[in-house]
Write a protein that binds this DNA or RNA. Structure first.
Length: 836
RNA sequence: GCCCGGGUGGCGGAAUGGCAGACGCGGUGGACUCAAAAUCCACUGUCCGAAAGGGCGUGCGGGUUCGAAUCCCGCCCCGGGCACCA
């Protein structure tokens, strides 16, 4: 398609100029009010794909718009450059991950620049830079010293495909690895953890103040999974100490202490430490069988056995009973894998009447059910699935069968039961979280080495700060062995103890790459001050990030880790104490789908942006992404998409031809007094300012673009038919200013030709309220809610006048046909509805 | 199973209790041209009608209201998150 101007030349010229003139470089002593815009730093996988284009278009728009509004805008960029693909490429091709990664970074950087997105490149951060590694390690040492990093043996998620440990968050719901798709198995390994659970309450409470999408906050709340309840002891029957033997009790956690009178059995997890003590001789074989099966089974197998029918296989009686302290009667204790050792106390009181899982288990084992909440009328007959008999009832209702709790509602009964447990000294109120500590060890090469040394005499020792960074050597074997490749490199592995100087070995695991991305936004604020990862004062100047932009796929992991890290850094003195939340506003843009799946390199359904850069150009591609729909929505890339992109290019051509008329013929503008048509265009200009400004505020870029198109549709015939020169100039200048954040190159070039300076350094236009106000509005006249006429009225028309005008309408008179209105609703100046 | 979103022309979407379908894509017709491209102009939800005009219409069924795409109740479908977390 022939374009109205040389797109490639114009775009190249301005990209170079923005870089040369450092237009978007900003320092912390900048007198303008600070504003920090950040798009999530990308994993460098090669040239930008459409998802990047969409993301960086929104980010760049904000940077340019906020700059025009008078802010000193911090707009940094960097690369999340550690990670598996580079290492896999190394395994496959023998190329060192650094060489591979640096090449991908160069490609991505290049294509981001060719979109016209502007950044303060002086601040570029790359996870694999030795300096960033050093500070990552220094932070680790601080966390270690503060007890926020620790080493522990734990059953961990092991991915046989990736040959590494995974965080809980990286295991999908079906028990497979999010990256390789292999079934994840459990292994007991000694690993490094970050104590994120220490911040569970704060991370939960902090969500309230954030301007984030509600659904993201909900996801985080669910992930943290706070539940209030009580823990208490169930004395094992015959082990109350009266026979001289050590007393034995089973501690259980419940969120429903009010249902305690309905406890008809108890369950312990297969891994529970008291299983042996509870199991009687005759049940030992059964229990052992169950335990070994539970140990060997993967999460997938456990899940596939779920459902009431399979429960029979999954639990076994221990032979022991415990005393329900509420009823003082014994109930049997079972071992079952539906109780998890990792949550609460690893043991539960089972109340089949008010818990679905306990109900299923009780049905399978013929255990009694005692209701303690009155179910609604008819529940036992048709409260269940498909109108069948009702099962566990978890709703509200009056307490029954519960002695001194009878007649109470559930919240009151909960409080009273907990209070009783505390006064009797049997237990206490507690809070439990679903959130686990963050496992950061990875048996991988291409990551930040964990900077510790193991000395046979002095144990675990941090590598001294002056010896940081601990860098991986280049000559390693990359084949996946289940151990970090670093372990196979004697020169790296063998070192000396920092305390005694004797022989010692290094930790060979590297950190989860989510560690890198948990504080890069802080590093961006000040990558220059020596001896600190960033200057706390300077960080304070910019933080929190005013607008964070990135995919919803990071709603839990990255965003939660970063929130934890910011607090942890503040608490160990690396960041100001009052800095708690890193991202004040977060916007999750939708993803791009093709044939129903996410467009991604791994799916092989990428559409390369580069081909559009040479045809319609970056501006048209950006405009398309803004115009196609609400930014939060997913968008489908279809056969029609190319035509829409062409349409965006056509629109920019029209803008160009209006704003930069060719020498011949000269546009037919005239000077002199304003006619009605001139004033109409003038008013439309100011209404456009108003509309685009408001649409920008609410992220409604598609309607902002539509408004500009509408305006051009109005302007085009006006200019052609001889518009008033000042009105035309003001209209075109305004249009260029409003489009400048969206389509920076073409507006910059057109503006320079018209005025000789930079459009992006001009202030954002301000509308004149007098001109924005409508001169006359169309009032709709309805009869019984149906439109019968439209009348032009003044915006200030009175209720009485509106009513009078409506009733005088010929169309209304005809419709009424002599009938007297029962009621007239006048909402001047928009509408009058006559009810007959 | 639980918790969020969402369902509007041929398509992307607009309209946050007041003219449903802005804007764009696609389509149809026309102007310009030897012709094409580009550009420009007009029409384009659906049904009835030659037209003027009118009926119907925002997943389905009810309700609130002078008035509902919008609010409430029930249902269906699509997308996402969580899921033995006691």
């Amino acid at each position: 398609m022939a374009r109205a101007y040389d797109v490639s030349e114009v775009e190249k010229k301005w990209q170079e100029r923005w870089a040369e003139e450092g237009t978007y470089e900003v320092d912390s002593d900048d007198p303008r009010p600070p504003w920090y815009v950040l798009s999530m730093y990308p994993y460098p996988s090669g040239p930008a794909h459409m998802g990047h284009v969409r993301n960086y278009t929104f980010g760049d728009l904000l940077v340019r718009h906020r700059t025009m509004l008078g802010y000193g805008v911090l707009s940094p960029f960097g690369f999340d450059s550690f990670g598996l693909p580079a290492e896999n490429a190394a395994i496959k091709t023998g190329t060192h991950p650094r060489i591979f990664t640096d090449a991908r970074i160069a490609e991505l950087k290049d294509s981001v620049t060719s979109l016209g997105a502007v950044y303060d490149w002086r601040r570029e951060v790359r996870s694999h830079d030795p300096e960033y590694i050093m500070w990552n390690q220094a932070i680790f040492q601080k966390l270690l010293a503060a007890g926020l990093a620790y080493r522990a043996t734990a059953p961990v998620n092991w991915c046989p495909g990736c040959q590494t440990v995974l965080a809980n968050e990286q295991v999908l719901a079906d028990g497979t690895c999010e990256r390789s798709g292999d079934v994840v198995v459990k292994r007991d390994l000694e690993q490094w953890f970050f104590r994120i659970t220490q911040y569970a309450d704060e991370l939960l409470a902090g969500l309230d103040e954030l301007e984030w999408p509600e659904r993201v906050k909900t996801m985080q709340r669910n992930w943290i999974g706070r539940s209030e309840g009580a823990e208490f002891d169930l004395v094992v029957e015959g082990r109350d100490g009266s026979d001289g033997r050590e007393p034995l009790a089973l501690r259980v956690f419940t969120t429903r202490p009010d249902t305690s009178f309905g406890m008809t059995y108890a369950v312990v997890a297969p891994e529970h430490p008291l299983v042996d003590a509870l199991t009687t001789a005759e049940h030992r074989a059964d229990v052992a069988a169950l335990r070994s099966r539970a140990e060997a089974s993967t999460d997938v197998e456990r899940m596939s056995e779920s459902g009431p029918l399979s429960l029979v296989k999954r639990g076994v009686f221990t032979g022991s009973s415990v005393i329900n302290p509420f009823t003082r009667r014994p109930v049997p204790v079972y071992v079952a894998d539906y109780v998890l050792m990792g949550y609460g106390t690893g043991a539960i009181m089972a109340v089949p009447a008010e818990d679905a899982r306990d109900w299923d288990f009780a049905q399978a084992y013929g255990l009694p059910v005692v209701r303690t909440v009155q179910p609604p009328e008819g529940w036992e007959e048709h409260g269940g699935p498909a109108g069948g008999p009702g099962g566990a009832y978890t709703g509200t209702g009056e307490k029954i069968n519960s002695e001194w709790l009878n007649g109470l509602d559930i919240p009151t009964a909960k409080a009273k039961a907990s209070e009783w447990l505390e006064t009797e000294g049997i237990g206490e109120r507690t809070v439990n979280y679903r959130l686990r500590d963050w496992l950061i060890s990875r048996q991988r090469f291409w990551g930040c080495p964990i900077p510790v040394v193991y000395c046979p005499d002095h144990g675990i020792l941090p590598v001294p700060l002056e010896q940081l960074p601990v860098l991986a050597p280049d000559d390693v074997e990359f084949l996946p062995t289940g151990e970090s490749p670093l372990a196979t490199n004697p020169e790296f592995l063998n070192t000396t103890c920092p305390r005694c100087g004797g022989p010692a070995t290094r930790e060979t695991d590297t950190m989860d790459t989510f560690v890198d991305s948990s504080w890069y936004f802080l590093r961006f604020t000040d990558p220059w001050t020596p001896d600190v990862p960033f200057d706390p004062e300077i960080a304070s100047h910019w933080m929190p990030v005013d607008q964070y932009i990135g995919g919803i796929e990071h709603a839990i992991l990255h965003l939660l880790y970063a929130r934890f890290f910011t607090r942890a850094l503040a608490d160990v003195g690396l960041a100001p104490e009052e800095m708690r939340e890193p991202f004040a506003r977060y916007y999750a843009q939708g993803m791009i789908r093709m044939d129903g799946t996410k467009m991604s390199k791994s799916k092989g359904n990428l559409v390369a942006p580069s081909s559009y850069l040479t045809t319609v150009g970056a501006d048209a591609l950006r405009l398309f992404h803004l115009f196609v729909g609400p930014p939060a929505d997913d968008m489908d890339w279809t056969e029609q998409t190319d035509s829409v992109i062409e349409g965006c290019g056509r629109f920019l051509d029209r803008v160009w031809r209006l704003a930069v008329p060719p020498d011949e013929p000269v546009p037919q503008t005239r000077s002199g007094p304003l006619t009605g048509k001139d004033v109409e265009v003038q008013r439309a200009t100011h209404r456009l300012i108003d509309r685009v400004t408001r649409d920008f505020e609410r992220w409604s870029y598609n309607t902002a673009v539509a408004a500009c198109m509408e305006f051009v549709n109005l302007l085009h015939p006006y200019v052609r038919d001889g518009g008033q020169v000042e009105v035309v100039d003001a209209a075109l200048d305004t249009l260029l200013l409003l489009l400048a954040p969206m389509t920076p190159h073409v507006t910059a070039e057109a503006w320079e030709r018209r005025h000789g300076d930079h459009v992006h350094l001009r202030p954002w236009p301000v509308s004149d309220p007098v001109l924005v106000a409508e001169e006359s509005v169309t009032m709709v006249v309805q009869v019984n809610g149906k439109v019968r006429d439209r009348v032009e009225v003044s915006p200030e028309v009175s209720e009485a006048d509106a009513e009078r005008l409506a009733l005088a309408s010929a169309a209304v008179v005809e419709t009424l046909d002599g009938a007297a209105p029962k009621r007239v609703i006048a909402r001047p100046p928009k509408l009058v509805n006559i009810v007959v």
